[in-house]
Amino acid sequence: MDTVPRRLSELGADLGNLAVALPVLVCAMAYAAYRGRRAQALYAGLAMALVPAVIIPLKEWTARPGPLEPWAAGYYPSGHTATAMVAYFGAAFLVSKRLVPVAAVLTALTGTGLILRGYHWPLDVLASLILGLLLLTVSSTCTRRSSG
């Protein structure tokens, strides 16, 4: 028996889909570029481009099976969680720092949905949160150096 309705947990998991998260970041990048913050927009885009460059090799290297599909491999770390984190926090940093709590909620909903649906183990999500934080930190550092 599910403790959370399946539709709700699936919706949370879907927030990490590239088709959902990337347009949010692209719109924020366009807004930032329009406001004259092209370097910040560029580094946010580069951080998003690095998500698959970092996640895919780790998935192949670890070949971790999924919670509901022990015969399948490539579940560690969670690409959806990293995508959500980098896209939503990147968008919040570009548009308004007041949106950071919204980014945190969207990222948390993504990770929770992935775990509840059985797509990922909690450690898969945690590892992606750490990787996302690392990518956002590098992006932020590069932004400060280029504008300072």
Rank of each mutant, 00 (worst) to 15 (best):
R98P: 05
I55D: 13
G36F: 02
A44S: 08
L134Q: 07
M29G: 07
A103T: 07
M85W: 05
T141I: 13
P5F: 02
L46S: 00
G16A: 04
G36E: 00
L58P: 07
L46R: 00
L129K: 06
E10D: 10
W61T: 10
S146P: 03
T141K: 13
V100T: 07
M48S: 03
N17R: 11
P5S: 02
R35M: 03
L106H: 13
V86M: 10
A63L: 03
I130C: 15
A104K: 06
R37G: 05
A91V: 05
A47S: 00
A53R: 02
Y75I: 04
S96A: 13
Q40V: 01
Y34I: 00
P67E: 09
L99C: 06
T107I: 04
V4E: 02
S146H: 12
L46Q: 01
L50D: 03
H120R: 06
M85V: 09
A49D: 00
D2E: 06
V125K: 08
E60L: 12
A33D: 01
M85E: 14
G66Y: 05
A32T: 01
L135P: 12
F93N: 09
W71A: 15
S78C: 09
V105R: 11
V100H: 01
D14V: 02
A39T: 01
L46A: 03
A103L: 08
D124S: 11
A63E: 06
S78G: 10
L42Q: 01
S78K: 07
A73Q: 14
A84W: 04
S139H: 09
V4M: 06
A47D: 00
G132H: 12
S96R: 14
V125W: 12
A104C: 11
P70I: 06
A91T: 05
H80R: 10
L68P: 04
S146L: 09
P57H: 02
Y88M: 10
Y31D: 02
V51G: 01
T143D: 14
A21Y: 02
G66D: 11
L131S: 14
A49E: 00
P122S: 12
G113F: 06
L126I: 15
L129M: 14
L133K: 09
S78H: 09
L134W: 14
T137K: 11
I130G: 14
A103M: 06
R35T: 01
G74A: 08
E10T: 08
L123Y: 10
R64E: 12
T83Q: 10
P5N: 03
Y43P: 01
M29S: 07
V95R: 11
A72D: 10
W71C: 13
L99A: 07
M85K: 09
F89C: 12
S140V: 08
Y76F: 15
G79C: 08
M48A: 11
A13R: 06
K59E: 09
R145N: 15
F93M: 14
A30Q: 02
A13T: 03
R145E: 15
S139W: 08
L106I: 06
L15S: 10
A28Q: 02
T81V: 13
V54K: 01
P70L: 05
A28S: 03
F93L: 15
G113E: 05
T143Q: 13
A33E: 00
A13D: 04
G12A: 05
D124T: 08
W121Y: 14
L22G: 00
D14H: 11
